[in-house]
Design a protein around this nucleic acid. Structure first.
Lengths: 100, 100
DNA sequence: GGTTTGTTTGACAATTTTTGTCAAAGATAA
DNA sequence: TTATCTTTGACAAAAATTGTCAAACAAACC
């Protein structure tokens, strides 16, 4: 299964961009972007937006990758991780239904 | 939909326990427990374990409530929240399958 | 070989977030 | 009122996140 970092790195190399070029666009040190691609740092939401722009990746898809990886990382160690996610879906739907 | 805090408060009152009694068992200030019950503070994992003991609530169920609420709170504002949760489920299963 | 360019890593500082403490205010029952 | 319990807000301590920098590493080239 492809990680967010792998997606970003592959896309960057396909477009022939250097770390420092993309990092400058994100307004972060290239060390941070390298770590994001290697999975050693979590990107911020702003990073994701700008990455979707410069790498021309669909913004919503990238956001889904970002959020799902963050969540999976948080709870992967729990025995009840899958059940918690199912309940979380119900709660999210409940919250969204009450916000209309 | 019942919140974690509501579950805890109802159960504590049913058992006739005071905030300071439960808080002492958790080894936290009663102010913190009050805020947890009101939903103004997130409990720690240790809090959850001890709460399940002293309030005699099934530990796994309480952990599911805790995790799902934490996740739902984190991403409820996102348009793609539900989709992210579905992808997160796949990732969790993938991670768990590769840890055997 | 050495030089250049790009990437990765680790130590550290700055910042933000989380967690705990305390005292005072509010609520309720006697 | 008085006593007890709960809630709140200001603040401090601790932990996690985020950024900066320099050096190490890797690959391509002379």
């Amino acid at each position: 299964m492809e990680t967010l970092g792998q997606i970003l790195k592959t896309k960057r190399e396909t477009k022939g961009l250097l770390l420092r070029q993309v990092a400058a666009y994100l307004d972060v040190d290239q060390a941070i972007l390298s770590k994001i691609e290697k999975g050693n740092r979590k990107p911020t939401k702003d990073n994701i937006y700008k990455l979707s722009e410069i790498l021309e990746i669909d913004k919503e898809n990238l956001m889904i990758q970002f959020l799902s990886e963050k969540i999976a990382y948080e709870i992967a160690g729990e025995d009840c991780a899958s059940q918690a996610l199912k309940v979380a879906e119900k709660k999210v739907k409940f919250i969204q239904a009450n916000n209309k």
